[in-house]
């Protein structure tokens, strides 16, 4: 163990892992194995000369965030995932996922999972609620790791640039639903379908099984701290160590079925959104049927 630590220390002190922004990479290089550091270095980034893209994402930031939540991914939630081959290696992609579990830990797990096992060089840009940029430090962690505020302008810019975005079409009602309604999808909003058609992005329906049992709440305080919709009061002080199962479904080939002009037709957009919801519901039903228990 000590020898491993010494090797990593010597590795991080001899060469900068990220030439553009070498200052903080040593921490990530201590925690992450070389294989994941190599993945971070291989990340496709629209680098504008200083190691950051227009949204503030940096390779160093992604590595730092992965290192930050890797314990949760590997040891606490012991994430298992299936169907990475369904994630396109190129072009704009919308990952549409169910949402739940009081805190959006499911988003972190999906990002880490795609980073670790998905196509090399890609990481999903998580779309976070409007209050996230108001949170000190949290906004920095999110921004550097690739998360963006949930505005249409950001969607347009990311999909235009051929990026992969992770959306929760259920929105806040998804994460706010009571424990008794776990895995019952709220009506999907249609914005993701409209933008996928407009930007000719493939949609990968996916589900997270496990997250919706991780942290039952007993109360929602109507306190809008930093603009958040509510403050949850959970049953337990920390999330339960449930096992996460991530299922990536077959991609919906939007470009071959729709033209960009059809994004202006509400009926077509709603039809696609309903199809995505049905596909996610199927994945959830399958994931629930094959898992052996909440913690296993």
């Amino acid at each position: 163990m000590l020898e491993r630590l010494r090797k990593r220390l010597s590795r991080s002190s001899h060469r900068p892992v990220f030439p553009a922004a070498p200052a903080g990479d040593w921490w990530a290089s201590l925690v992450l194995p070389e294989e994941l550091m190599a993945r971070a270095r291989a990340l496709r980034l629209d680098d504008l000369g200083h190691g950051y893209d227009r949204f503030g994402m940096s390779r160093e930031g992604v590595a730092f965030a992965v290192a930050f939540v890797d314990f949760l991914y590997s040891h606490y939630f012991r994430v298992l995932s299936y169907g990475h081959e369904n994630i396109p290696e190129e072009g704009p992609v919308v990952l549409a996922c169910n949402h739940g579990g009081t805190l959006p830990l499911d988003g972190f797990m999906v990002c880490v999972d795609v980073f670790r096992k998905g196509p090399l060089g890609r990481v999903p840009r998580t779309v976070v609620d409007h209050f996230a940029p108001l949170l000190p430090w949290v906004n920095l962690l999110f921004s550097r790791a690739g998360a963006v505020g949930g505005s249409r302008g950001n969607f347009h810019a990311l999909l235009d640039a051929g990026q992969m975005i992770l959306v929760y079409p259920e929105g806040v009602p998804g994460i706010a639903k009571p424990f008794s309604e776990r895995y019952q999808l709220q009506r999907f909003r249609a914005g993701h379908a409209e933008l996928a058609i407009l930007h000719q992005a493939k949609i990968v329906p996916m589900c997270v099984v496990g997250a919706e049992e991780q942290w039952p709440t007993i109360l929602k305080l109507k306190v809008h701290l930093f603009g958040s919709p509510y403050i949850p009061v959970p049953v337990t002080p920390v999330p339960l160590p449930v096992r996460y199962h991530l299922w990536y479904g077959e991609a919906i080939d939007v470009p071959s079925r729709y033209s960009p002009e059809q994004s202006r037709d509400p009926a077509v957009v709603q039809e696609l959104a309903d199809e995505v919801q049905a596909r996610v519901a199927e994945l959830i039903a399958h994931g629930l049927s094959v898992r052996e228990g909440v913690f296993t």
Binding site: H130, P133, G149, S151, R152, G153, A157
Partner: peptide, 11 residues
């Protein structure tokens, strides 16, 4: 906070 990070002319 609710505006995009990348500003187009129609913002």
């Amino acid at each position: 906070n609710d505006q995009p990070d990348v500003l187009r002319e129609d913002q």
